[in-house]
């Protein structure tokens, strides 16, 4: 077998207090400072499902747990949540969710299109279970309400930090998959509602027309440096370094009005 990496294997060096946790009902003793993810690995699990970025952004490791004598359902991302003594936990690596298929070219950015794709929006009972279960503290019920009111921009803003772990969908009385709806809304806002950025199109057109080709050709002609034979193209590389060193740096404090003194290889009327 492969030799495998060791860096995250290490048990904390200081003798550390062990606490009992119950993984799907089964008891394991684990160091008290570990995250749920590292505690499960400490216990001997090797992840296939239920682990992803290990940094709190991919939504692969949604976890639900309860503590004895407490009726509350608690949630967290396994990679971000530190274990607690006597917690009973399971991960929810997958939960079936309805995602509408729509033709992107045909949508115009209207709330009615979202309603048509996801009529279950109007089954929302405003129970707020989605918001309570969200490990990212997103006001899920509020963005659902904003969509129903036709305020897609507000919904896009409120849902922006969504990592699509799907926990909201597991708890929804209306059987919605809120995160898919929010994804459609954010795309509509980004492409069809937000103010356009004409400077991008102007630059794309300039590049396609060959406006910068001459400048690029000259600098490309200087070639490159072979890392294992650094003197082979020395004269050209020195010229390249000279160009690099004399290029004007935009200072940190500038605002959008700043323009360099050296207008070489730039575009007129670019704004």
């Amino acid at each position: 077998m492969c030799d495998t990496a060791t860096i995250e294997k290490k048990v904390p060096e200081v003798a550390e207090e062990l606490v009992p946790i119950y993984i799907m009902g089964k008891k394991y003793e684990v160091p008290a400072s570990l995250t749920i993810m590292k505690a499960m690995e400490y216990a001997g699990y090797q992840y296939i499902r239920g682990a992803g970025c290990r940094g709190g952004i991919c939504g692969a490791c949604a976890t639900v747990y309860r503590k004895p004598g407490d009726y509350h359902i608690r949630v967290g991302l396994a990679c971000q949540t530190v274990v607690e003594a006597d917690m009973y936990l399971t991960q929810i690596p997958f939960f079936p969710a309805n995602r509408a298929v729509y033709k992107w070219e045909d949508v115009r950015g209207e709330a009615e299109e979202v309603f048509a794709a996801y009529p279950e929006l109007f089954r929302c009972l405003a129970c707020n279970a989605c918001t309570k279960v969200c490990p990212m503290d997103i006001p899920v019920m509020d963005y659902v309400a904003a969509i129903k009111q036709g305020n897609l921009e507000k919904a896009a803003e409120l849902s922006f930090d969504c990592i699509q772990c799907g926990l909201c969908a597991t708890r929804c009385m209306a059987e919605m998959a809120q995160y898919h709806i929010a994804q459609m809304v954010r795309r509509l806002v980004g492409a069809k509602i937000a103010v356009p950025s004409p400077h991008v199109d102007k630059q794309v057109a300039a590049i396609k027309s060959g406006h910068y080709d001459e400048a690029l050709k000259e600098v490309m002609a200087l070639g490159t440096m072979d890392p294992f034979n650094q003197d082979a193209n020395k004269e050209n590389i020195d010229k390249l370094k000279e160009l690099y060193n004399k290029r004007q740096g935009e200072s940190h404090a500038t605002d959008e009005s700043w323009e360099p003194d050296d207008k070489y290889a730039l575009l007129e009327d670019a704004r």
């Binding site: 290029r247 360099p260 070489y264 730039l266």
Partner: peptide, 12 residues
């Protein structure tokens, strides 16, 4: 942003 930047500067 063509008023201050281009593929040339990005290249360098």
């Amino acid at each position: 942003k063509g008023w201050k930047d281009s593929p040339y500067y990005h290249y360098l």
